[in-house]
Design a protein around this nucleic acid. Structure first.
Lengths: 184, 184
DNA sequence: CTCATATGTGAGACACAGTACCACTTCTGC
DNA sequence: GCAGAAGTGGTACTGTGTCTCACATATGAG
C-alpha cells in the first residue's frame, strides 16, 4: 500500500515536476486522504526517497566487510560497488528520477541530507580504520574521508545523468574518486 | 537597515533556536511588517545566511590567484586560507552561530546548499587546472575535487564547533584535507 | 452473539512560510 | 505644489505539515 502510493508519487512527479505536484494531487490520484498520506510518509520528499533510505545501512555493512588492511579511501570505493551496481541495474525510470533529483533544488538538498545521515552511519567504521577514537568530535578525519567520498559519488551521479549516452557509472566514479587523491 | 534586521534575526535565533523563531516574531522585534521582511530577504534562512553568500566569489578569486603549477587539491586548500581566517577572526557569536547551523537540520541543509552553489562557481577554475573541458558534463573530476574539499571544510567546521576549547581551525582543516589523500 | 479495544481512515481546524496585489506614505525632482 | 518613484503595510491566498476528533472495520473475549 505504501509502495503503491510511492509509485503514484513517482509517476506524477516524473510527469509534471516536483514543485508542480501538490500533495492534494497525489491524494486524488492515489484515492486517499491527506491524513492518510501523511500517516504513510512524514513529508512529500520522503515519499519520493523513502525506499533508498536503508541503502545507508547496506553501505555501512559493505564497508565493515572490507579487509581492515585496506586504505580507508579504497575500502569506501569498494563498499560503494553494490550501491553503484544497484543504480546501474535499474531501469531508465530510475535514471530519470535521479536526474530529476539532481536538477530540482529542494530534492537535491534532500539528497545531500541523506548523505549527511549516511555520514553518521559510516563514521565509526572509518574512524576504526583510521585508528581514531570514534567518540572524539575534535578529529575531523573520518568525517572528511566520508564527506569527500560521498561528494565524489554526487559528482559521479551528476555526470552520469547529464550524459545522454550512459557510460558506466562505476567507471565515472573511479575517475571521480581518483581526482582528489591525484595530487599532481 | 537590512543589516539591522539581520542582527535581530541572529539575536532571536541564538536565543530561542531557529524553528522556534517565526517570521512574525522577527517582524515584531524589528518593528517591521512581514511584507517588509520578505522584501529584504527572500526567505527566513537567507536572513541568517545572507552576509556570507559572497564568500563564494572571494573563494573563487583566491583560487584563481594561486599559481597554475600547484596541484588542484593544494590550491583549494590555500584558497580556503582567507575564509578560514575570517571564521577564526570573528567573535564567539559567530562560533555559536556556526554551531547552531551545524546542529539545526534545516540550516545545515541550507549550508550544504550554499556549498553546492560554490561548487558551480569554482568548477571552471578547477577544471582548468585539471586540463579538463569545463563544459564537459561527463567529466566528474572537477566536481569531485570541489565536493571533496568542501566536505572536508564541513567536517572541520563540525569538529571546530564541537570542541569546547577552540583549536586552530586551520590546523583542523589541514588534518581533514590530508585524510582522504593519505592512502597509506 | 455482543461488547470492547485496537487500528486504519477521513474531515476539519490550525500554524507557518512564502507570494501577489493593492493602498498609503514619504521623498525627490520638475 | 505636484507628479512619479520607492519604501512600507495590509490582506488574502496557496501549500506543507501538525493535531484532534469522529467513524469504520476487525479482532478477540466473554
Amino acid at each position: 500500500m505504501r509502495a503503491e502510493v510511492a509509485s503514484v508519487v513517482q509517476d506524477l512527479v516524473l510527469e509534471r515536476g516536483y514543485e508542480e505536484t501538490t500533495v492534494d494531487d497525489i491524494c486524488a490520484a492515489a484515492e486517499i486522504s491527506r491524513s492518510t498520506f501523511f500517516r504513510y510518509f512524514p513529508s512529500k520528499e520522503e515519499a519520493l526517497f523513502g525506499e533508498s533510505l536503508d541503502a545507508g545501512e547496506r553501505l555501512r555493512d559493505a564497508l565493515a566487510a572490507r579487509p581492515l588492511g585496506e586504505a580507508p579511501w579504497v575500502a569506501m570505493r569498494r563498499a560503494l560497488d553494490a550501491l553503484i551496481e544497484q543504480y546501474e541495474a535499474h531501469d531508465e525510470r530510475t535514471r530519470r528520477l535521479t536526474r530529476l533529483i539532481v536538477n530540482t533544488p529542494s530534492l537535491a538538498a534532500r539528497h545531500r541530507d541523506k548523505n549527511a545521515r549516511w555520514q553518521e552511519l559510516l563514521r565509526p567504521e572509518i574512524a576504526r580504520r583510521l585508528g581514531a577514537d570514534p567518540a572524539d568530535d575534535a578529529d575531523p578525519r573520518a568525517n572528511a574521508v566520508i564527506a569527500a567520498a560521498l561528494g565524489c559519488v554526487e559528482a559521479a551521479l551528476t555526470a552520469w545523468t547529464a550524459n545522454t549516452q550512459p557510460q558506466s557509472l562505476a567507471m565515472i566514479l573511479d575517475r571521480a574518486m581518483q581526482a582528489p587523491t591525484h595530487l599532481r
